[in-house]
Amino acid sequence: MTNSEKNRLKDKAFQVFGIFCTFIGLVVLGIFLFDIILEGAKRIDWDFLVSLPSRRASRAGILTAWVGTIWILLLTTIIAFPLGVSAGVYLEEYAKKTKLANFLEINISNLAGVPSIIYGLLGLEIFVRQMRLGSSLLAGALTLSLLILPIIIVTTREAIKAVPRSIRDGSFALGASKWQTVWHQVLPASFGGILTGIILALSRAVGEAAPLIVIGALAYVPFTPSSPLDEFTVLPIQIFNWTSRPQEAFLTNAAAAIIILLIITFMLNGIAVYLRNRQQKKIKW
């Protein structure tokens, strides 16, 4: 074999390896989802969705968990949406190139890299103890809001950046003030992108268990929360709890709950992708 033939062979071999690597993760994921559906699907029925937790695996349900998850999603949106978008608007439209903006930018990148469990410790000390919110939905939502704030800020900035300069010029030239331009032109034009970012951030929040465990969210809550100051659990914590039990039947419960959690996660991601595609199609500058 000549040298160049050898090289070509190596090249081909790497190509095959490349295809293998590209799909190995997806194949493993596929196997896993299949395994989970096989194990969990049979457990999902109406009773499972509307039953309270129980010591007996066959009677236990996820009512408190999914209601808690929905509560957390709503509260987190209410808190993080205005805060994150405002901060993004400030950094992109008002504070360009100042020293403060530079520092804020570095700080936000840093926050994005802080492990979620550290946010849990922050929430435990500030919201649970200092603000005396206890291990409530509100404390949980505040903690998760801080966690996803960097994501919302970064995606808001990206979306705003995509609005062409000429639109702002056009608005200013008609006598609009900075805020009028932001409110009437920049935000509507970037809304699709901002919404996409928020939904992606929420899909991150919906799967978080660690920070909520640290602030004291419990696995066993015998009632559904009715106000933001009630104690709560969420799906990931319920899954964690069931996974940690030795009995096989609880693993089946965990698999069933995972299916529900994945449906929520994929739905959120699906909406985000749909919005992004629609946005890209709708506006051609």
Binding site: P164, S166, I167, D169, G170, S171, A173, L174, Q185, P188, A189, I283
Partner: peptide, 11 residues
């Protein structure tokens, strides 16, 4: 008032 080089209607 001002009119720009490239038409810039608002969306």
């Amino acid at each position: 008032g001002m009119v720009f080089q490239k038409p810039n209607p608002f969306p």
